[in-house]
């Protein structure tokens, strides 16, 4: 199972990113669990400077932007 973490404390883009990831997971039937990280001390483990951050299997793949669906699909299927 792929572990997905959304880093960000409830900003508009964090919610949008979560929706896109959920959509990709549902469409592709990927076995994944989404976890939201809202605690700053926790999310700084990945050394981000901008929210939202996207962490897949403990690796930060993007920060400060909403990646496209194809990018997210690639990350989710590669891992």
């Amino acid at each position: 199972m792929v572990s997905v973490k959304i880093l960000g404390s409830g900003c508009a883009n964090c919610k949008r990113l979560e929706a896109v990831v959920a959509k990709v997971i549902a469409e592709r039937g990927i076995d994944a669990a989404i976890e939201k990280v809202t605690d700053y001390a926790h999310m700084m483990r990945w050394n981000i400077l901008q929210t939202p951050g996207l962490v897949i299997n403990d690796t930060l793949v993007s920060a400060g932007r909403i990646p496209s669906e194809s990018e997210i699909t690639a990350w989710l299927t590669q891992h």
């Binding site: 960000g8 404390s9 900003c11 508009a12 883009n13 700053y40 999310m43 700084m44 050394n47 981000i48 400077l49 901008q50 929210t51 400060g64």
Partner: peptide, 17 residues
């Protein structure tokens, strides 16, 4: 630098650190 006040906290921590 592109900046959104919603990212002010991670940015602050990242800078100070």
């Amino acid at each position: 630098t592109p900046f959104c006040s919603c990212s002010a906290v991670p940015l602050f921590i990242g800078f100070v650190e």
